[in-house]
Design a protein around this nucleic acid. Sequence first.
DNA 1: CTGTTAGCGCTTTCAA
DNA 2: TTGAAAGCGCTAACAG
Lengths: 364, 364
Amino acid sequence: MASKISPTDLLRSTDKNRSPRASGRVTLSDVAQSVGVSAMTVSRALRGERRVDPKLVAQIQAAAQRMGYVPDPAARALASQKSSQVLVLVPLLSNTLFVDLIESIHRVLFAAGYHALIGVTHYDRSEEEQLLHTYLPLRPAGLLLTGFDHSPAARELLASSKIPCVHMMELSAETDAPHPAQEAMSSTPCVGFSQTQAGAAITRHLLERGHRRIGFCAGQLDARVMQRAAGWRAELEQQGLYEPSLEILSPQPTSMALGAELLAQALQRRPDMDALFFCNDDIAQGALLEALRRGIPVPERLAIVGFNDLPGSDQMLPPLTTVRTPRGAIGAESAQMLLSLMQGKPVAQPRLDLGYTLVVRQSS
Amino acid sequence: MASKISPTDLLRSTDKNRSPRASGRVTLSDVAQSVGVSAMTVSRALRGERRVDPKLVAQIQAAAQRMGYVPDPAARALASQKSSQVLVLVPLLSNTLFVDLIESIHRVLFAAGYHALIGVTHYDRSEEEQLLHTYLPLRPAGLLLTGFDHSPAARELLASSKIPCVHMMELSAETDAPHPAQEAMSSTPCVGFSQTQAGAAITRHLLERGHRRIGFCAGQLDARVMQRAAGWRAELEQQGLYEPSLEILSPQPTSMALGAELLAQALQRRPDMDALFFCNDDIAQGALLEALRRGIPVPERLAIVGFNDLPGSDQMLPPLTTVRTPRGAIGAESAQMLLSLMQGKPVAQPRLDLGYTLVVRQSS
DNA sequence: CTGTTAGCGCTTTCAA
DNA sequence: TTGAAAGCGCTAACAG
């Protein structure tokens, strides 16, 4: 195992002789030198590439550990043209939904040696585009995006970057909710559930409970909210119960205050309303409190249901009936799918439906 | 403006001759060549370094724009030993407080060309340590940490990294709340407010309202919560009203459900309790709902106050009295301070107190 | 004010 | 299975 020591290595061996630009960190060649192999071998060994003598691998790992070697992500990214970061774009952080999503993504990616770089789009296509513009040059190893609603320029960026990408929270090519760019993404990897079907399911629940004038109240009119609306509407139409005046929409972001306001609007417009389906639990909670303030018996006079099963919904008066969405699982499975894609492995189910659960409490 | 074109540049000029490793992106030398200057000049011009002919700067910027040049962060990080990322560590994302903090940090840093890399510690010193271990090698340009509660090893890492760092949400060297490592950090840059004083202030408010048996209920017993407790306790002691049984603490994370539980515990232990100070609005909200369920008149029979002024607190029945904390401003000012530190500029107020506001609503 | 030189620390490529 | 050479794209450190 007589080793040839390159001039550079010799230079490095003496601390005095280190280049003035050296950062002082332990490098690959430091480890290589100490073991008596080339830097290349250390690089391969540490990355777990095959075709390295197992004995050497053990020795190298021990040395790296002992010397406190930590790979330099910048150097690695520069040389290999890809970083260990995964860009994760979500619309908001103020909805627990996305926090849960991020937490489970982080857990899976972190364990696999990747870092989640989080970007917030505020439900704005141009903000998303700008984020892609600034973050794509970081050469993320993968992308995790919320929904399919991108600007054309963003689509372009994504396509030309050729970076593996998984879409979260909704499914491509839903036959019951035609999507503008449906065709283009029928093969796009995605993990989620049918927002439309979930919206339809909770509407059916209300119908089964005997409600007939079921309103839909929503803020933050993003694509997924509109899919829920479509599910609600389809069920009502099927029963011949749909009327435009049952739809109370506001472009404002959802909040408890907005819930109170929409409840008021709904009852003013349709005093005969006997149930309300809110697009998200936070506005439903606000509506529940407003009903309490107004002395409206829930669910006797008016049933109220929400969506997502957020914290606090079980604490309301009465506890809120809602749809539990599997965001934790969506995050984990998306990350897992992305890991496969990044490794070039085939993905068994590139369109993964994780379903939803109706949670019936006392508000309906 | 006759330019010397280096051999490498000539090589690059012909697409056929590009190295097999080239990434295809437009590089600094591409721009340099097109303008007829050296890569170094382009580098300086684009980074806005002084000592470059303004005319050249304009020309170079135009060329970069036209050619679609985007700097490579990895190459930049490798050469300069610092990335454009700022590591931001927060305990949680499920508390709106930290989301607000992050949003404003992001806004300030992004505008200055930096990216926020967010890490979540879950109030766990060893998790924080691990995050530092894995993220410090990314050579972040700066650090933004929540609180001062680090493990010794983490302190070591921070100190030896020599990366500029600002602590958020609490202030160093509070004379009224001795901190374990107080001395060491009396000069540490920090932006926040006195948690102790804020806790004392809302307690005084309750005392002024005539309450005498004021309990303190808390979950998630982190350093800042305990500082609020200290403020509460000091006020009570001053009036000779402090008793250990008034303190109801739980190690569990705060939530509305925990609020309900702690209210129950408090009333069981001290049926004569006439006011409760909850360490965070979410548990206070849960307590308010529990009071409603139990038919306890608030504030007549029992006053309830919270902390942070989170969304929904104004929607409660009755609306919650609380302390509004300036997390948006804290995020913005911390980021601003960090920018100064990163540029080596002196910081006028390295210990910035942004105060707090008592928000008196109907629950007290 | 501008350019030259020499790396930053790693990995691709190719040769042994 | 291992190694040598040659960069990745940029900037620090001098010169001029």
